[in-house]
Amino acid sequence: MTSSTITLDALDTPAAVIDLPRMQHNIARMQQRMNALGVTFRPHVKTTKCLDVVRAQVAAGAQGITVSTLKEAEAFFAAGIIDILYAVGIVAAKLPRAMALYRQGCHLKLVVDNVEAAQAVVDHYRTHGECSEVWIEVDTDGHRSGITPEQDALLEVGRILQDGGIKVGGVMTHAGSSYDLHDQAALAALAEQERAGCVRAAQRLREAGIPCTAVSVGSTPTALAAEHLEGVTEVRAGVYVFFDLVMHNVGVCKIDEIALSVLTTVIGHQADKGWVIVDAGWMAMSRDRGTAKQLHDFGYGQPCALDGTLFDGLTLIGANQEHGILAASDGSVRDDLATRFPAGTKLRILPNHACATGAQFPEYHAVSSRGGVEVWGRFHGW
Rank of each mutant, 00 (worst) to 15 (best):
L224Q: 15
A78F: 03
T127C: 08
H107E: 13
K346S: 10
R370S: 14
P43L: 07
N26M: 08
S4D: 08
A186K: 11
Q203N: 13
Q360L: 07
H296R: 15
A73T: 04
L306H: 00
D83N: 12
A356M: 15
D312R: 12
I147V: 11
F76H: 06
V333N: 11
D183I: 03
L350H: 00
G301N: 04
G80M: 09
L229I: 05
A201T: 15
L51K: 03
A189R: 12
L350D: 00
P351Y: 01
A175Y: 08
F311A: 04
D307N: 14
C355V: 13
S132W: 04
A271L: 10
H365E: 03
T222D: 07
G158H: 02
A62H: 02
Q151Y: 04
G268E: 07
Q57C: 08
V252N: 09
Q270F: 10
E130L: 12
L154F: 02
I160P: 00
L224C: 12
G344T: 08
V232M: 04
R348F: 05
E74W: 01
A16F: 09
A100H: 14
D256W: 13
Q294A: 14
G170S: 09
W382H: 13
A10K: 11
S329K: 15
D163R: 14
K94P: 02
E234V: 01
G170W: 09
G324M: 01
N114P: 01
R144Y: 11
L161N: 00
I27H: 06
G165F: 03
G299D: 06
R29C: 06
R144D: 08
T357P: 08
L70K: 01
S261E: 05
K167Q: 10
T173N: 12
W135Y: 10
G142W: 00
A319G: 00
V373Q: 10
V375F: 15
E322T: 15
A78M: 02
A56E: 11
V115F: 09
A354H: 06
A202M: 08
C131N: 10
E156F: 05
A202S: 14
A153K: 13
D256L: 13
T345I: 07
V232D: 01
C198A: 15
L263T: 02
G331E: 05
P303W: 10
S286Y: 01
I136K: 04
N26P: 09
M99K: 07
V122D: 03
L95S: 01
H380S: 14
H228P: 02
L51H: 11
F41S: 06
T233C: 00
W275F: 15
G313I: 04
W282S: 11
R55N: 14
I65C: 03
A62R: 06
S261K: 02
E116V: 15
F243Q: 13
A62M: 03
Q184G: 08
I349F: 02
G164F: 00
Y300Q: 07
V250N: 08
G358W: 07
P211W: 11
V115Y: 12
Q151N: 11
V250D: 12
G358R: 02
L190W: 01
A153W: 05
P351T: 00
K109L: 13
T213I: 04
D312K: 12
G331C: 09
E227Y: 08
T220I: 06
S216N: 15
W135R: 11
P14D: 07
I27F: 06
F311R: 06
C198I: 14
H25Y: 10
K94L: 12
T2C: 06
H365T: 05
G371K: 04
I65A: 05
D141L: 06
G274R: 09
V53L: 05
